[in-house]
């Protein structure tokens, strides 16, 4: 490995889980408070970028497991899927639909097409940024 990166290694390993959790938090609270898919995707991308600083391009690719372009495509598919319930019930495209799943402990898991759309944005942003970063790595060789 490159000259001493002990401190960066430890830092990346300690900070990355926090960043990933924060990104999921931002994604999920996006419907009725500030936050949402875009900023959540940015934070997730920053976690992976920090990882790339510490461990290099190959390790980041391995960590992602899929090619970032596939993430981007999956995000777009999620966005498309969020339009289907409205179309099936004969309303205007992208009309929001809500379902509530009862859970033990007297609480509900709120699912909605808005959330599906937000997950799509999240994946698309993450995929785009990681495509940039990995593309730049390949240019530099």
């Amino acid at each position: 490995m490159k000259s001493n990166t002990v401190i960066l290694h430890t830092a990346a390993l300690a900070i990355m889980p926090l960043q990933l959790m924060f990104s999921v938090f931002l994604l999920l609270r996006g419907h009725d408070e500030p936050g949402g898919g875009f900023i959540g995707g940015l934070v997730a991308a920053s976690a992976f970028v920090l990882y790339a600083f510490a461990f290099g391009a190959e390790a980041t690719r391995k960590l992602l497991r899929v090619h970032p372009k596939d993430l981007l495509a999956a995000g777009l598919l999620f966005g498309l899927a969020s339009t289907i319930p409205a179309l099936l019930s004969g309303q205007a495209m992208l009309t929001a639909h809500w379902w509530e799943l009862p859970l033990p402990g007297d609480s509900y898991l709120k699912l909605s097409t808005v959330l599906v759309f937000d997950i799509g944005v999240y994946l698309a942003v993450l995929g785009t940024l990681m495509t940039f970063v990995i593309g730049l790595m390949e240019v530099e060789g």
Partner: peptide
């Protein structure tokens, strides 16, 4: 979060 990544970069 973002500032730290920027400084390191």
């Amino acid at each position: 979060v973002m500032g730290f990544v920027g400084t390191v970069a």
